[in-house]
């Protein structure tokens, strides 16, 4: 087939248009989130003392930090699937929620006696946290990867990793409503570990699924 012929066919197909990823990814993610919410309602549910907990800074910080991570990561995932789109400032933007978590950890270390550090870090719910966050993240990750397949990531593993970070952050924000461990020491350790697992899964899946 001559290139001329190909161009003719492509021009004839010009009317069919797909939604941009900045729309398609959040729509798909919302469907994934609905599944995650159902899982949360059935398997976990909010902690019984959520009304009083919501008045403490330690508790409120958790969903705020995770929400910030989710917002930066979802924009990053979209950009990584758009060839030639600038991403450097967004990657640097991840420092904002990470910095907030760092400040919270520092403040915790400064205000809590060192004998308490170990107990707060280990917490009471570590294993539930490590299982729940990846489990709640799974439907969001599947939906995000499905949407990203319409994209054109030059680095498929990177786009998959960003989708993993987004999914894990959404899941963590949700899980935070159940989790009884509010210490930033716990969050920085176990939430991060759970997130790393999901990011790795996203990168691996992305490398296979997001090639084009």
């Amino acid at each position: 087939m001559k290139t001329d012929d190909l161009v003719r066919a492509l021009a004839a197909d010009a009317a069919v248009r797909e939604r941009p990823l900045a729309v398609a990814l959040p729509v798909a993610a919302a469907a994934g989130l609905a599944v995650a919410l159902a899982l949360f309602a059935v398997a976990l549910g909010p902690r019984p003392d959520i009304a009083t907990a919501a008045q403490t800074l330690r508790f409120v910080l958790k969903p705020v930090e995770m929400g910030l991570f989710a917002i930066v990561a979802v924009v990053l995932a979209v950009r990584l699937a758009e060839p030639g789109a600038p991403v450097r400032r967004l990657v640097a933007g991840l420092a904002a929620p990470a910095g907030l978590l760092g400040v919270a950890v520092t403040a915790e270390l400064a205000t809590v006696p060192s004998a308490e550090w170990g107990r707060r870090l280990v917490g009471t719910n570590a294993r539930v946290c490590l299982v729940s966050i990846p489990l709640l993240a799974a439907p969001v990750l599947v939906a995000s990867l499905w949407a990203l397949r319409r994209g054109a990531p030059v680095h498929p593993a990177g786009a998959g990793a960003a989708a993993g970070l987004f999914s894990a952050s959404v899941a963590a924000a949700l899980y935070a409503l159940h989790c009884g461990d509010d210490s930033p020491l716990f969050v920085a350790t176990w939430y991060s570990l759970a997130t790393v697992l999901v990011v790795a899964a996203g990168a691996l899946a992305g490398r296979r699924l997001l090639r084009w």
Binding site: L6, V7, L21, E82, P83, G151, W212
Partner: peptide, 20 residues
């Protein structure tokens, strides 16, 4: 050219087309 066609929705019209 086929990729340009199939992935044209990944170009944001607010950005220059060259880098894309």
């Amino acid at each position: 050219l086929l990729a340009v066609h199939l992935k044209r929705h990944t170009w944001d019209a607010a950005r220059p087309i060259g880098p894309w």
